[in-house]
Amino acid sequence: MSYDTLILERTGHVAVLTLNRPERMNAFDSAMRAELPLAWQEISDDPEIRVVVLTGAGERAFCAGMDLREVAAREAPRDASGAAPRVQITSMDCNVGKPVICAVNGVCAGGGLAFVADSDICICSENASFTDARTRAGQISIHGTLRLARRIPIEALLRLVLLASAERLTAARAYDIGLVSQVVAPDRLRDTAIELALAVARNSPSAVHYTRQAIWESLNHGLDRALELGWDAITGYSRSHPDVQEGARAFVEKREPHWAPPPKPGSKPGDDS
């Protein structure tokens, strides 16, 4: 499928999804908000895609958040009950169970932070920066923000949301506090992200799927309970999944493993035996 505001490409088992409104710093307008769930669905449905790289077009911005020009021009949309519809732009918003590597190629602002917050792995270019002007635009900063509270020191997050456009987290600072795990030259970003995605894609798709699911789920629980649930995932999976034996055999025989196809969306450990 082709999109007006996005580019979806495939390299082996890796999909590269590019936010493509560079003239508006890849801000999401109603068109992009409509297309993102379709693109995530396409990614979720394609068994050949194991890992996703998410990035922005152009050299200036990854995503500037909600397109304020559009917000200013018209009444905010309301559903029948009078509530604003939920923004569904990230893989998490759209219930995609595949790992996402965010490659932040410039400014990441406001609602654009949700892509970072919901990613599994995040790297950025030297010119990347992170800022959240939402409170200065009269909006509350929630989308993305609450998951970021689980990813970075709380001081850094509160500083970002309270100082709004006066605060800008640099790539170097993002690396220091562990928001990103790697900073590279702008012209190396995309390739670096794809290399990382290919490394993830070489591992058992099922093991990656359930590992990712279990670690995210652990954030909903206290440590001891989280460990119990983690153990349940391990035993449910290990009891029956063919990749367990195949992985060990391939290791011992020093050959490439032949993995089972990835689990269907929404599968739980033990489902695919």
């Binding site: 590992t211 279990a214 670690i215 989280a226 460990l227 034996q245 195949e246 992985g247 493993p257």
Partner: peptide, 16 residues
């Protein structure tokens, strides 16, 4: 873990 088809879950949950 995921290299050999196992879940890398238990230790990473502690690391989170």
């Amino acid at each position: 873990h995921v290299n050999v088809g196992l879940l890398g879950v238990y230790e990473p949950i502690g690391l989170t």
